[in-house]
Lab assay of single mutants.
Amino acid sequence: SEEWVEIALRLLELGREANINGTILNLHKEEIEELIRRLLKRI
């Protein structure tokens, strides 16, 4: 399964939302940290 691709796409999506909203992603901080942890486990 290409889970890391899904994770990377989700991170990009959150990054785009952050640019549009001008936020520092506090809302998504925990989700982002969890996604990155899952991503690093696969490398």
Rank of each mutant, 00 (worst) to 15 (best):
S1M: 13
S1H: 13
S1P: 09
S1D: 10
S1E: 13
S1Y: 13
S1L: 15
S1N: 05
E2D: 09
E2L: 13
E2W: 15
E2V: 07
E2N: 14
E2Q: 10
E2P: 11
E2M: 12
E2S: 09
E3A: 10
E3Q: 10
E3L: 11
E3N: 07
E3T: 09
E3M: 07
E3G: 12
E3H: 13
E3K: 10
W4M: 09
W4Q: 00
W4I: 09
W4Y: 02
W4T: 02
W4S: 01
W4P: 01
V5F: 11
V5N: 02
V5L: 10
V5G: 02
V5M: 08
V5P: 01
V5H: 06
V5D: 02
V5I: 07
V5W: 14
E6D: 06
E6P: 02
E6M: 06
E6Y: 07
E6W: 11
E6S: 11
E6Q: 07
E6R: 10
E6N: 11
E6C: 15
I7R: 01
I7L: 08
I7T: 01
I7H: 00
I7E: 01
I7A: 04
I7K: 02
A8W: 12
A8Y: 09
A8H: 03
A8N: 01
A8G: 03
A8I: 15
A8K: 03
A8M: 11
A8P: 00
A8T: 10
A8S: 03
A8R: 03
A8V: 14
A8F: 14
L9T: 03
L9V: 06
L9F: 07
L9I: 06
L9R: 07
L9D: 02
L9S: 03
L9Y: 06
L9N: 06
L9P: 00
R10F: 13
R10Q: 04
R10A: 12
R10P: 01
R10E: 03
R10S: 02
R10T: 03
R10N: 03
L11I: 07
L11E: 01
L11T: 00
L11R: 00
L11D: 00
L11S: 00
L11F: 07
L11V: 04
L12A: 03
L12V: 06
L12R: 01
L12S: 02
L12N: 01
L12Q: 02
L12Y: 03
L12K: 02
L12I: 13
L12T: 03
L12H: 03
L12M: 07
E13F: 11
E13L: 11
E13G: 12
E13H: 02
E13T: 03
E13M: 05
E13R: 04
E13A: 04
E13N: 01
E13V: 04
E13S: 03
L14E: 02
L14Q: 02
L14A: 03
L14V: 06
L14T: 02
L14N: 02
L14W: 10
L14S: 02
L14M: 04
L14G: 02
L14Y: 06
G15Q: 04
G15V: 15
G15Y: 14
G15D: 03
R16I: 13
R16T: 05
R16K: 10
R16C: 15
R16S: 10
R16G: 10
R16H: 10
R16E: 05
R16Y: 13
R16W: 14
R16D: 03
E17R: 12
E17Y: 07
E17F: 07
E17M: 13
E17L: 14
E17I: 08
E17T: 07
E17V: 09
E17K: 05
E17Q: 08
E17P: 07
E17A: 11
E17G: 04
A18R: 03
A18L: 13
A18I: 14
A18T: 05
A18D: 03
A18F: 09
A18G: 06
A18M: 09
A18K: 03
A18W: 09
N19H: 14
N19G: 08
N19L: 15
N19R: 12
N19Q: 11
N19W: 15
N19E: 10
N19K: 12
N19A: 14
N19M: 15
N19P: 04
N19D: 08
N19V: 15
I20G: 05
I20D: 05
I20R: 08
I20N: 05
I20Q: 05
I20M: 04
I20P: 05
N21P: 08
N21H: 06
N21M: 12
N21V: 12
N21A: 13
N21S: 05
N21L: 15
N21F: 15
N21W: 14
N21K: 08
N21G: 08
N21T: 13
N21D: 10
G22T: 12
G22Y: 04
G22E: 13
G22M: 11
G22R: 04
T23N: 12
T23E: 12
T23A: 11
T23R: 04
T23F: 12
T23C: 15
T23Y: 14
T23G: 12
I24K: 03
I24Q: 03
I24N: 10
I24L: 03
I24P: 05
I24Y: 05
I24D: 13
I24W: 12
I24F: 08
L25Y: 01
L25E: 07
L25Q: 10
L25M: 08
L25G: 12
L25I: 12
N26T: 04
N26I: 11
N26E: 14
N26A: 08
N26L: 13
N26W: 14
N26V: 08
N26S: 05
N26F: 14
N26D: 13
N26C: 15
N26R: 01
L27M: 12
L27E: 08
L27R: 07
L27Y: 09
L27F: 08
L27A: 09
L27I: 12
L27S: 14
H28E: 09
H28R: 02
H28K: 07
H28L: 15
H28S: 14
H28Y: 13
H28Q: 11
H28N: 10
K29A: 14
K29C: 15
K29D: 09
K29Y: 14
K29W: 15
K29T: 12
K29Q: 11
E30I: 04
E30A: 07
E30K: 14
E30F: 07
E30D: 13
E30M: 07
E30N: 04
E30P: 02
E31D: 05
E31S: 01
E31F: 12
E31H: 09
E31I: 12
E31T: 01
E31L: 14
E31G: 03
E31V: 12
E31Y: 13
E31A: 11
E31P: 01
E31W: 13
I32T: 01
I32V: 09
I32K: 00
I32E: 00
I32P: 00
I32R: 00
I32H: 00
I32Q: 00
I32L: 07
I32M: 04
E33C: 15
E33V: 13
E33K: 10
E33Y: 13
E33N: 09
E33M: 12
E34L: 11
E34W: 04
E34G: 04
E34R: 10
E34A: 06
E34P: 00
L35Q: 01
L35G: 00
L35P: 00
L35W: 07
L35M: 06
L35N: 00
L35K: 01
I36C: 08
I36G: 01
I36S: 00
I36F: 09
I36M: 02
I36W: 03
I36L: 06
I36V: 08
I36Y: 03
R37S: 03
R37I: 10
R37H: 06
R37Q: 05
R37K: 08
R37A: 08
R37V: 03
R37T: 04
R37F: 09
R37Y: 05
R37P: 01
R38P: 01
R38F: 06
R38S: 07
R38N: 11
R38M: 09
R38T: 05
R38V: 07
R38G: 07
L39I: 12
L39T: 01
L39K: 00
L39M: 06
L39D: 00
L39Y: 04
L39G: 00
L39N: 00
L39E: 01
L39P: 00
L40P: 00
L40W: 09
L40R: 04
L40Q: 05
L40M: 08
L40S: 03
L40D: 03
L40T: 01
L40E: 05
L40V: 10
L40I: 11
L40Y: 05
L40N: 02
L40F: 06
L40A: 08
L40K: 05
L40H: 06
K41D: 13
K41E: 13
K41R: 14
K41V: 10
K41F: 08
K41P: 05
K41I: 11
K41S: 08
K41N: 05
R42N: 09
R42W: 15
R42E: 11
R42Q: 09
R42A: 14
R42S: 12
R42F: 14
R42P: 09
R42V: 14
I43N: 05
I43D: 01
I43Y: 07
I43R: 01
I43M: 06
I43E: 02
I43T: 02
I43L: 12
